[in-house]
Design a protein around this nucleic acid. Structure first.
Lengths: 343, 343
DNA sequence: CTGAAAGCGCTAACAT
DNA sequence: ATGTTAGCGCTTTCAG
């Protein structure tokens, strides 16, 4: 019993039909008489038959499998994205393979190669780096549809993403309206960093008639709360001292809030904090956090829909296109809620 | 260029060798002269060759793929488990397929069937239900090794899990030592519920010389903070009123803490709260949460090691065995830290 | 050192 | 209504 898997041939021998007939019967072909089909189904059941999808894939050269490459599933928004993507794919009859790049381009490259050799029908990618993406474009060009879940300026790939520029803009606009004149930004820097958020911040600052010095950027050493906590010391040591903070993730913001509490800094009276992502932690921390809603489920759904469209009905798809979802600001206690001048 | 994938045959034609020789060369066979190999590798590179793992799988009847079935990846401990499992598998040269059951046995059954038809070499499963697992055992018996990440009493399957009985025992022991005489337990009940935690609680209560009425169990309607919040109303309405709460997940505990804050209940002075899992939220909430450390990364590593062992060297594996990791209690502010009588 | 042939389990085209 | 044949891309004998 153990270890042996029934094949079509086994059912064929058990019933006296040919493997072909068995195949047709199992797929419910209408041109077989009811009785034949029933005898075959019964034998399949008895032999505990399970179709070999690998063999089928080889014939069809299509696997009904999609690869998902994330930077890090521990990031709560990516967790939600992974959940939604898996759910939508499964609903559509696709399996999902999963790999994490940990924001390393090299790992990303390996993951993509792995998926290609496994013949996935398409890939959804949260890119590891904002500048190096030739290998992603190459995969798409070679015939495996790729959809990005973060905008990559300069790439020619289909994209469904949150408009981070507008998200950061909304956060900074509120802070500026409240009279803040010196605002710190915590962002996981360099090429990995998200220039969109920076640009949104600059736009709001410009509109408020402030100079560039109103914005001061700090680079945390990671994206966990502990890194937000650590960065706050540097933030508060800078001159002139900022009166507000925009953190590029809720986790960083929560760490910053923690620092404020431990150091007797009253939020939002003495210091305002805005996060990004609207993850669960933003509601249940010591102080409800004002944050930008990252609609991970929405981009996931649209993204899955889009890539399946491209796989199953490529003729209906035109040139690659970029869809940006505008995020909403969720105002809670960690920032003032009044747009009027707070100081 | 687009859409065409080079095969061995293409390289063969390009170089004048046979497909067989090409195959040997690409796999670095030593019996080929250096020059032949180099010419073939160069052609492979030029044609942008990527091996077809599906075809190879069909020959080897092994896919180097492992299936992971989780109940819900949004559960932070399962997120960590998924991350660690993926990392360990990838290190060992395996790909991972992922599916979520949402604690539905029917979905679990479908996920397992999916994985079997995709010919995974093994499966790691967080079971959906504590009583219905015949379909899991069947898969294992039919030759696809299965490893459980939660103990299923009565099953005959390899298991690596946290000893929840001891975890709950440690939490209740602390509460009893602090003088609590009426303790509420929040657990996602019925068959899905975890009897181990209940038994651990009962053991501690017995050892403290208390009667069974010292423990009162409530069933939240989900496992998000909002459900913990909602359940607290019922907890505080019960007579006699409990002075402490053990929540079966940190999320529930955080929701309960939130309720305490909104209702002016001082924690831990008037009411003690202990969570379970030691997730990030337990450190960064309003009040640092006493909790039981769920070593998801540890069981994941051991689990991956074990199942690969069974796949690659079955002869070294004996009968199925159950490995239970003893969890530690992490004492923080939400409970008193003194073992002495607090009331 | 290299090639030819068979076959993994399945499906599709073509018989009968 | 059912069977036969060929072939998906690769690896594995077995010959030369």
């Amino acid at each position: 019993m153990a270890g042996y898997r029934a094949r079509l041939k086994d059912i064929a021998e058990a019933t006296g039909f040919s493997a072909n007939t068995v195949s047709l019967a199992l797929r419910g072909s209408p041109r077989l008489p009811k009785e034949t089909r029933e005898r075959i189904l019964e034998a399949a059941e008895r032999l505990n038959y399970s179709p070999n999808h690998i063999a089928r894939s080889l014939v069809h050269s299509t696997t009904r499998t999609i690869g998902l490459v994330l930077t890090d599933i521990m990031n709560p928004t990516l967790t939600l994205a992974a959940r939604t993507i898996e759910r939508e794919l499964s609903r559509a009859g696709y399996a999902m393979m999963f790999a994490a790049s940990d924001s390393s381009v090299e790992n990303e490259r390996l993951a993509i190669e792995l998926f290609l050799s496994y013949q996935v029908d398409g890939m959804l990618i949260y890119p590891a780096d904002h500048r190096e993406f030739g290998h992603i474009e190459a995969a798409d060009r070679a015939g495996t549809p790729v959809l990005l879940l973060v905008e990559l300026p300069g790439s020619s790939l289909d994209t469904v993403a949150i408009d981070d520029r507008i998200g950061a803009y909304k956060a900074f606009r509120l802070l500026c309206q409240q009279g803040h004149r010196r605002i710190a930004m915590l962002d996981g820097g360099r090429g990995l960093g998200n220039f969109d958020k920076m640009h949104g911040a600059q736009k709001a600052i410009g509109e408020a008639g402030l100079s560039d010095e109103a914005l001061i950027v700090f680079e945390p050493e990671g994206h966990a709360p502990v890194h937000g906590f650590a960065a706050m010391r540097r933030v508060m040591a800078s001159e002139p001292r900022p009166t507000a903070l925009f953190a590029s993730t809720d986790s960083l913001a929560v760490g910053a809030l923690h620092w404020c509490r431990e150091n007797g800094l009253a939020v939002p009276r003495d210091f305002a904090v805005i996060g990004y992502d609207n993850t669960e932690i933003s509601q249940y921390g010591a102080l409800p956090l004002t944050t930008v809603n990252y609609a991970a489920d929405e981009i996931s759904k649209i993204g899955v829909y889009r890539i399946l469209q491209r796989i199953e009905r490529p003729e209906t798809c035109g040139a690659p296109c970029v869809t940006l979802i505008e995020p909403e600001l969720v105002v809670r206690a960690s920032s003032g809620s009044e747009p009027g001048p707070a100081r």
